[in-house]
């Protein structure tokens, strides 16, 4: 089976499991809904203020929600020693990594599509800048979160305190990407600055870390 074939098969399996259980999407949805409500109570912003803080708010909510789903990514493969079976099989490790990453990417994108109307309603958001730029920022930013998140989730299931370890590893490394997402989103929403630099930075971040993940995943998967 080719790399793409294995990736496809693994991805279809993950998507089917998610479709039947809806574990990841439900927990992420409810979690980010809670964050939206709590932030609204905590800051009680006016429409003008919320346009300024929305960039930070949206991405912090998605970052926290993504961690919830990312933690479940590999845990499911530990049951019945599926991961060990994968390790001894001749399938390329990067195919598994790509399948997991694309799967998580799709989950988080679905979450964003479902949550976007809620943000608009609760925070009276109206974009001053062009909306298509937000789309680019969302796609690049989500990939940045998910590619490192999937990799670090793979690291942290090997540690003693699995669920706490993931944010401890992911957040420091994600700081520049988070800064770029937040500032690009705020620039578009307020229409005060151009998000071009931040979009480029996100693209560079995505390329650098996707390459690193693909380079190092085999070592991590086979770590004894």
């Amino acid at each position: 089976m080719s790399t793409l074939g294995v990736t496809g098969a693994s991805l279809v399996k993950d998507l089917r499991m998610e479709w039947r259980s809806k574990d990841a999407i439900n927990s992420m949805l409810f979690f980010s809904l809670l964050v939206v409500v709590i932030f609204s109570f905590a800051f009680n912003p006016t429409a003008e203020e919320s346009r300024r803080i929305a960039g930070g708010l949206i991405w912090v909510a998605f970052l926290f929600a993504a961690v919830v789903a990312l933690n479940q990514t590999w845990a499911r493969e530990l049951r019945n020693q599926v991961l060990d079976a994968y390790r001894v099989s001749p399938a390329p490790p990067n195919a598994l990594f790509l399948a997991k990453t694309v799967g998580n990417f799709l989950f988080v994108v679905v979450l964003e599509i479902l949550m976007a109307p809620l943000f608009v309603v609760f925070y009276e958001l109206r974009s001053v800048g062009p909306v298509w730029q937000l789309l680019v920022v969302a796609l690049l930013g989500t990939w940045a979160l998910v590619v490192n998140g999937t990799f670090f989730a793979g690291l942290s299931i090997r540690t003693r305190n699995r669920e706490i370890m993931l944010p401890l590893l992911l957040f420091p490394i994600t700081i520049p990407a988070l800064l770029a997402m937040v500032d690009a989103t705020t620039s578009v929403l307020t229409g005060e600055a151009s998000p071009d630099f931040w979009i480029k930075l996100l693209a560079v971040y995505d390329i650098v870390f996707t390459a690193l993940c693909l380079l190092l995943f085999e070592s991590v998967l086979n770590a004894e």
């Binding site: 490192n148 690291l155 190092l216 070592s219 991590v220």
Partner: peptide
């Protein structure tokens, strides 16, 4: 695991 993370940190 530590070596892999060190590479990520330095690249960041």
């Amino acid at each position: 695991l530590a070596a892999a993370f060190a590479i990520f940190g330095f690249a960041d």
